[in-house]
Structures are given as C-alpha cells and as structure tokens.
C-alpha cells in the first residue's frame, strides 16, 4: 500500500489560514489501512482544526467526507455537485488523490493534509516500512525477492558496500543491510550462485527519471 502520515497540525492550520469553508476529504483506500486518512482520522483532524481556529477566534465551517478512493474518476466525480461551495478541499488521501482532485476540479483549491511517504508494509500494528520504490522494471527475481532499490540506503545493485556491519547499514544501525538479507535468503534457498552474476546498469528511464509514466490497456478501455 501507499503509506502516508498526517502533517503537523500547525502546518495544516497555516495552509488553511483565512479560508472559511473547507471539505476535509478522507480516502478508504491505502490511507485508511495505514491510519493516515481514514474516516476516523478525518473526524480527529476536523475536531483539532475547529479547536485551533476557535482558539484564534477565527471559526471555520468544516464538512467531513470520505470517498471509497480518490484515485478513480467514479469516486472523485461524486464531489461534482457540492465542491463549488467550498473555499478548498483538504485531502487526507495520498498525493495521488490530491493531484486527481486538482486535475478534475480546476476551480477548486486542493490541499494535502498528509505527507505521502512510501510503498510499504505494516510490519506490525502501528509500524510501517518501505519495500518498493516503483522503479518500473522489477528485478526481485534476481535478489531473492528483496528490493535493493527501496531497501538499500545507497540503492546499490551489486552490494553490499563496505559499510555493512553485523547485518546493519552504516547509514543507521536501526536499518537492516538489505544486501546481507539478500545473501542470507539466497543462501537459504540454495541460490547463492545468483550473486555471481553482476547486475547490469539499470534503465532508470522507465523509473521517474524518464518523466511521468502511463499505462494504457486497450483491452480494458470502454
């Protein structure tokens, strides 16, 4: 899933300063799973904003709503009837949702309430960590299913570097060295010979370095 985290309250308050009527828009997709922009987080943020504004003697009118997803037209278009009445929409979806709002409603101010962080997993309740960087050309078949793009601090393709100490990364001792993990895993799978192969230079053109990406499936179009 896409993992996000709510922005600091003061940053949000200054973003909406002077605005009088706002739609706080949650998303039932990824940000509900990672507890950043669910229906509940919308209620909490709305309460906090109302209190913050009342304290400054600048009351604000807030409408709370949560869409199934903010990244699909059938859901984002549900706002078309009502969106005109708001000074702005404060989206609690990932950056994709905010972008899509901006794309679909040229006259509406679209603001982000969360920082979109990474594609990751829930390691346990309340803990999320990064696993994939969306590089556009997956090589996990060569690395025992563990991603050096997202999980090696230096993004090395033929690691580890000299900074790998007791399985930890020199950047931060809390981070596992993914190349140590790759080695251990390939060893366990009896596939250590895979490491004899030097991975070629990667084509970053299919990653974001090649500009915004797009996928078209003619068979699915209507």
């Amino acid at each position: 899933m896409i993992v996000a985290e709510r922005k600091p309250i003061q940053e949000i308050l200054s973003m909406i300063s002077g605005l009088r009527k706002i739609l706080i828009l949650g998303c039932k997709g990824c940000v509900t799973v990672c507890s950043a922009g669910s229906e509940r987080e919308v209620m909490i943020l709305a309460t906090i904003i109302r209190m913050g504004r009342k304290k400054k003697d600048e009351p604000i009118e807030l409408v709370e709503r949560t869409l199934v997803r903010q990244c699909d037209p059938e859901f984002i278009d549900q706002l078309s009837d009502s969106i005109g009445q708001f000074d702005a929409v404060l989206s609690m979806a990932c950056g994709v949702g905010v972008n899509f709002l901006a794309d679909r409603y040229p006259k509406t101010i679209a603001l982000p309430a969360v920082n979109t962080k990474f594609y990751g997993v829930a390691e346990e309740q309340g803990v999320w960590s990064e696993r994939c960087a969306g590089c556009g050309d997956c090589i996990l078949n060569l690395t025992g299913g563990l991603c050096p793009v997202a999980r090696c601090s230096k993004g090395l393709f033929n690691g580890p570097c000299g900074g790998s100490v007791n399985g930890k990364c020199e950047i931060n001792p809390d981070i596992n060295c993914v190349w140590q993990l790759i080695y251990d895993r390939l060893k366990g799978l009896n596939q250590l010979d895979k490491l004899d192969e030097i991975l070629p230079v990667k084509d970053w053109g299919v990653s974001s370095h090649g500009g915004p990406r797009k996928i078209v499936r003619e068979d699915l179009k209507i």
């Binding site: 600091p8 309250i9 003061q10 909490i44 906090i48 209190m51 913050g52 304290k55």
Partner: peptide
C-alpha cells in the same frame, strides 16, 4: 501531543 500542537 495533539492538544499541545493545537495550543490548548
């Protein structure tokens, strides 16, 4: 933390 951030 939320209350502190809001200034309450």
């Amino acid at each position: 933390k939320l209350l502190a951030e809001t200034g309450l």
